[in-house]
Amino acid sequence: MMMNLSSQLKELRNLKNRIVLITGASSGIGQAAAFEVARKGAIVVLVARNELKLNQVAQQCMLYSGRPAYAFPVDLGQVGAIDDTLTKINHEVGAVDVVINAAGFGDMESAVDTDPAVTDQMFRVNVLGLIYITRRLASAMIDKHYGAIINVASVAAKIPTPNSAVYTATKTAVVGYSDVLRQELRPFGIQVTTVNPGPVATNFFNVADQSGNYLAKVANFTVTPQLVAERLVDTIGYHVREITVPRYFSALSKVYHIWPDGGDFVIEQLFKDRGKHQQASAEDPS
C-alpha cells in the first residue's frame, strides 16, 4: 500500500494539467512560483488581495502554459472569505493537487513597538490563513491519497534577528505546524515541505527598510524570488522535509542552535545600529 501511495505522489513530478493553487501570487515568491509551474504546464490558481495584479499574473501564466489560469482575489486574514473562495475554486476549477502557501507580510519594528493590530493581522495572514487553507485542501488530498503542500516559512524561524520578533514568531509557527502536518499526512502519500528563504530581493525591503540599513547588512545574502521558486517547485512529488535558500543558511542555523550564545552575540553586533523601520505589508515573505 505504501508503495502505491509513493507511486501516486511521484506522478506529481509531471505538473502538466495538474491544478496548483498559490497564495500570495500577485508578487515575489508566489508570483515566481506561479510562472515556474505554468512553464511546466500546470493549471494555475492564483490567490491574493490585489485583483489587478492577479489578473496580470494569470495572463502571463496562460502564455507560459497554454492552459487556463484563474485569479481569485481574497483577504487571507478572513476565514469566511477563505472558505467561500475554496468552495468556489473546487466548483469552478476542480480538486487542487498542489498548494503553495507563499502569502505573508512582515513588520520591521522592535517587539515593544509593534502595534497590537499589526501583530493580530500578521498572525491572521501568515499563520491562521495558511492553516485554514491547508486544513481544507489536506482533507480532500487524504481522500485522493496524494497531493503536495508547500509552506513558505523563513530562515528567520531558524536564525532570528532584532526588530522582527512578531514576524519570526509567525514563521516559527509555520515550521512547527508543518512538522506535525508532515507526520500526520505522510501515511496518506501526501508531501509536506517547508521552504525557508533568506532575505529575498523583492519590494518587501522597499517598504520595510526605507533607510536601507538592514538591506545593506544582508546584501551579500539576498536571493531572487526566481531561485526560491525553482528550488521549491523542484521538490514537488518528493517527500522532502524542508529546503533552505540559499543552502548555506541551513549550516548556519545548525551552528546557531549548537552555540546560541555565540550566535546571539554575532547577530547583535551585526544589527546593533539598526534603527526602527516602517511596516512592510506584501504578499511576499522574506
Score class of each variant (00 low, 15 high):
P160Q: 04
T134P: 04
F72D: 05
S154A: 10
H91M: 10
D113P: 06
L130M: 15
D143N: 13
D75W: 09
V166G: 05
Y132V: 15
A169F: 09
Q78W: 00
Q59Y: 03
T85R: 12
Q60P: 07
V166L: 08
Y64N: 06
L52W: 04
E92Q: 15
N163G: 02
P162Y: 01
D115W: 04
A148T: 09
K144N: 13
M141R: 10
A71E: 08
I100R: 04
G77W: 08
R135I: 00
T114R: 05
I149H: 00
L130S: 03
V155K: 05
S139G: 15
G106W: 01
M122I: 10
K53C: 08
Y167D: 04
Y70F: 15
L52S: 11
F123H: 11
A153Q: 02
P73Q: 05
A156P: 01
K88I: 05
T114V: 10
A138C: 11
G94I: 02
G106D: 03
R67C: 11
V79W: 00
V79M: 07
N151F: 00
L54F: 11
K158V: 07
V98D: 02
V166T: 15
M122F: 07
D84F: 09
V118A: 11
Y146C: 13
K158G: 13
M62L: 05
D115G: 08
N151K: 05
K144D: 12
L130Y: 01
L76K: 02
V98P: 12
D143K: 15
R135Y: 14
K171M: 08
A58W: 09
G77Y: 05
S110P: 07
D120F: 08
D120R: 14
A103H: 04
T87I: 12
G80K: 11
G129E: 02
L54D: 09
I131M: 14
I159L: 15
N163E: 05
R67P: 08
I82N: 06
V112R: 06
V112T: 12
L54Y: 09
R136C: 08
A138M: 11
R135P: 04
I89Q: 06
